[in-house]
Simulated scan of single mutants.
Amino acid sequence: MDLFSITQVQNLLPFDGVANYHGIVLTKDQCNFYYQKLLDNITWENDKAIIFGKTIITKRKVAWYGVSEFAYTYSKITKTARLFTEELRQLKAIVEKESGETYNSCLLNLYHSGDEGMAYHSDGEKMLKKDGAIASLSLGAERKFSFKHKQTKQRIDIFLERGSLLVMKDKTQTNWLHRLPPTKKVQVPRINLTFRTIEL
């Protein structure tokens, strides 16, 4: 199933979860401004994961920010949050107003080109608010994003536009996997901000 050019808020998932696509929530000027600010000013680092006892270094870069310097563990790696920058506070306010949710942290991903992606996974870390909202804001390159149901294997694909917002919540992480598939068609970077709530 492919969904394109959605203008109203719509739940992309047919059952077992909520993934509300809000469409484009930033103007073209806002997209350009925040994209460049984040690219230049965020402290980007290569991501690490421990898989089968081995430490894997990813090509994509990540950054972890929050309202306080709390720790967050995923893929058996613990990160300490840096304090929100002014631009991240502004984007958090926009996302909170649009989604009707609140967030205390943001995990940012920098994909340098379409060669870099993310395999199927769920954001089910114990530190995350159970069934809480995860708001995904896209800047830079437009990329395909896929959901796959854990039991039925049904797949939902969507094209995430620049400046668009996708909010996953309720039982989505329990029942669905999601990924960013690599592509040879994209040669420019994408910045993805995932605002989330860590239970302190």
Rank of each mutant, 00 (worst) to 15 (best):
Y72C: 03
T172W: 05
L128K: 12
A49N: 01
Q36E: 13
G66A: 14
E116G: 06
S122A: 14
V25L: 05
A93L: 14
I94H: 02
A135C: 06
L83D: 06
D170N: 13
K61G: 04
L110W: 08
S164R: 09
I51Y: 04
F15S: 07
E45N: 12
D115V: 06
G23M: 10
K153G: 00
L160A: 03
E116D: 13
R155A: 13
G53W: 07
V62D: 01
L166S: 03
F15E: 03
I6M: 13
R60E: 01
G66I: 07
G17I: 11
K92C: 09
R89A: 01
E86P: 01
A93H: 06
V186N: 13
Q151S: 13
A19F: 12
K184R: 15
R89E: 13
D40L: 12
D40P: 01
I134W: 08
R82A: 08
D2T: 06
Q10P: 00
L193W: 03
D29C: 00
L83P: 07
L165F: 12
H178E: 04
G132T: 08
Q154I: 10
A63C: 10
L38K: 07
W64F: 15
I158M: 13
E87N: 13
G17E: 02
Q90C: 04
K54R: 15
F15V: 04
K48N: 10
E87T: 11
R143K: 12
V62T: 15
P189E: 04
C106L: 02
L200Q: 11
T58D: 09
T85W: 10
A119Y: 06
W64Y: 15
S105C: 14
D29L: 08
K129I: 09
K28T: 09
K61L: 08
R60G: 05
S105D: 02
N192R: 11
G117I: 03
I56K: 03
K130G: 00
V18A: 06
W176D: 06
E101Q: 15
K79E: 10
D115C: 05
V167R: 01
L110V: 04
V25W: 03
I24H: 00
Y35H: 12
K79R: 14
R190A: 03
K126T: 12
F147K: 04
F33L: 13
L180N: 08
Y34T: 06
G114N: 12
Q30E: 15
G114R: 10
T85I: 11
S5A: 14
K126Q: 14
Q8A: 08
L166R: 06
D40Q: 14
D16S: 15
R82C: 00
N41M: 03
A19H: 07
G66P: 00
E101V: 00
E142I: 11
L88Y: 07
R190G: 09
V9M: 04
I6C: 07
D16G: 05
D131P: 06
T73Y: 08
L108K: 05
Y34N: 06
S5C: 10
T80C: 04
F145I: 06
Q8T: 14
V95Y: 02
D47E: 14
Y21L: 07
K150A: 12
G23D: 05
A93P: 00
T174Q: 15
Q154L: 10
L3G: 00
V62E: 03
N32H: 11
N11I: 12
L139D: 04
P182N: 11
L39M: 13
F70M: 10
S68A: 14
R155N: 07
W176N: 08
V9T: 12
G132E: 05
H178K: 11
L193M: 11
N11S: 07
K48F: 14
Y35Q: 09
D131H: 13
